[in-house]
Design a protein around this nucleic acid. Structure first.
Lengths: 343, 343
DNA sequence: CTGTTAGCGCATTCAC
DNA sequence: GTGAATGCGCTAACAG
């Protein structure tokens, strides 16, 4: 029964009421200059005829789409989804929708997605650059053209004109590792992610400086930088790491929840007692850690809030007068260590 | 689109080259009717001037946005994200983007989101109705207006004009429970989700009919229909369920992976051996089950493929001539039981 | 092969 | 208060 019927438009209801399109438009806009009685007539007729405004036409005419483009490196990472939820919530409350795209960890796809955003579909962009993104010219190019932009997670300070939302990765991991040290742990393993990502570099820095503060020498054997971009391979990589250790760690600090869980899983397989023999701390706190047995202690990152904040900053930019120079703002959100059974 | 600098448009490059806008448009379109040499000039100049087509104007003019609207009940459910990934992949390969929205398990929000889709932003819709959605008039209304639509997951057969993508929930759970029975389990608990969802009703039906086939009486005490829509509360609900049992089950069949993990967690807390004393089967197979210790046996649902299939069906609808009657198609995808350590 | 013209649906300026 | 006219940037039908 699907016949694409022509949509009713302003003109249709104008003709029916014998008034002009302009009046109908104003009436629906609740413009006070329109007589109450006509306004009511218009609303009533619009309702009866099943009028539905055309968003595209509105956008073309107004020059804004009320859509925020969000670009994340991958979908299957709860952290990014959580950030998106935060963005979505704030955006929705401010009459914006979000268009999420994934760059699938590829610099090439990142650029392509950005180009399609630039085609006028979105009013502004929130993104987390991929680890492959060394050159940020494409980002600076966009901001210099006046595209409002907010970066989060894998921050690139070099991008001017964009706001930044971040956490203090160095301090967060420093605190976590210090916590382990204060619990008497000395052989603390580190499992990080792709070295190219600033967040992972920073978390490694925090780890090293905690060791340093307590005069614990860095044992390279206990350090793993996961290179996998895929769940499957992360698994294997971590398994191998533990298998080939000659020193047995008494604690493990990992840069994501998932690494933490995989570490615990591997340790449990080899009959290690957690936390008695080995303590484990993850990073993120996205729900998984609470389900595992034992539950995972971790650095709680305010993912949802990061999204909200990013959306807030972007929408603020969108409301700035066009001819003003945007002043870059950087927001650092707080993390905290959430203690559970693994420590 | 709030660009501080004015964007270059067709007119600009037309003027520069002293040709008409139409020719520029056609040239960029690689229309064979335009001379090779002009085409090249146009491309070169467009490049130099940094021309970027305006997607909104294109859409208004062409009547299509090349955007697929996707409406899911919640973001924080890996199943839905996985389906979205599938949709995204297929859509991308066919020159479509996807606009994901969440109805946050609310019928009201579902309707609101659909209305905003109806405003012309999307060419078609893929959705999983919420459990609250009893009346599907709003969906039939949309399809009858000619909006292409595909439903998945919480299918509502009453929706005419929309294609459906599903799995055989009854058979899948029947098979899983039968598997447990054949392993000698007799006191099989059932943990389902919100009763209003057809998928959960069906999985319960499958459970019951397996018991029935093997003459095992249904013990109501061993049945839980989780009502929580929130991770936090699911946790509590399942904990309570096990706490108050007077019969100890020797197996648990759950309707989601997460329930399965929570069940295992609770059982482990009470020192039960898995699978020796209690076997557990989950439903979904979205990665989490592989991380847990022990790993979770589950019904593997082809989530990604569901998304791909849904996108395929929708795009097929989009390419149908407008004046033709759409023939509703229903696709049923295969599931399989993936055995792991919990059984 | 290329130009002219007429929309697409709505907002908005300028009259009256 | 309301209407007529113009423009948003691009596509497409129709000429030539």
């Amino acid at each position: 029964m699907v016949f694409k019927k022509r949509r009713v438009k302003l003109e249709d209801i104008a003709r029916k009421l014998n008034i002009s399109i302009a009046t109908v438009s104003r009436a629906l806009d609740k413009n006070p200059r329109v007589k109450k009685s006509t306004q009511e007539k218009v609303f009533k007729t619009a309702e009866e005829m099943g009028y539905m405004p055309n968003q595209i036409a509105k956008s073309l005419s107004s020059g804004k789409t009320n859509i925020i483009g969000v670009l994340i490196p991958r979908y299957d990472e709860p952290f990014f989804i959580e950030v998106c939820r935060g963005i979505d919530q704030y955006a929705r409350n401010h009459n914006y929708k979000i268009l999420i795209s994934s760059s699938r960890n590829s610099y090439q796809f990142e650029k392509e997605n950005l180009i399609s955003f630039e085609r006028g579909l979105v009013d502004g962009i929130i993104l987390s650059p991929t680890h492959e993104t060394e050159n940020v010219a494409h980002l600076n190019d966009l901001t210099s053209k006046g595209m409002p932009m907010v970066l989060f997670d894998n921050i690139r300070e070099e991008v001017s004109g964009a706001d930044h939302v971040m956490i203090d990765d160095i301090k967060s991991s420093f605190d976590a590792v210090e916590f382990l040290i204060k619990k008497g742990r000395k052989k603390i393993a580190f499992i990080g992610g792709i070295k190219q990502k600033k967040v992972f570099q920073d978390r490694f820095t925090g780890y090293k400086s905690a060791l340093n503060k307590y005069k614990i020498p860095l044992n390279e054997e206990l350090v793993l930088h996961c290179n996998s971009l895929d769940r499957e391979f992360e698994d294997r990589e971590i398994l191998d790491f533990f298998k080939h250790l000659t020193t047995t760690p008494d604690a493990v600090f990992t840069c994501t929840d998932n690494y933490g869980l995989l570490a615990m899983k591997t340790l449990l397989k080899t009959e290690k007692k957690i936390p008695e023999e080995v303590a484990v701390i993850g990073f993120g706190d996205l729900g998984l850690g609470e389900v595992f047995v034992p539950t995972l202690t971790c650095v709680s990152q305010p993912s949802f809030e990061m999204g909200q904040k990013a959306a807030e900053l972007l929408i603020k930019q969108l409301n700035e007068p066009e001819d003003i120079l945007h002043k870059k703002t950087v927001v650092k959100l707080e993390t905290k260590l959430t203690q559970r059974e693994s420590t």
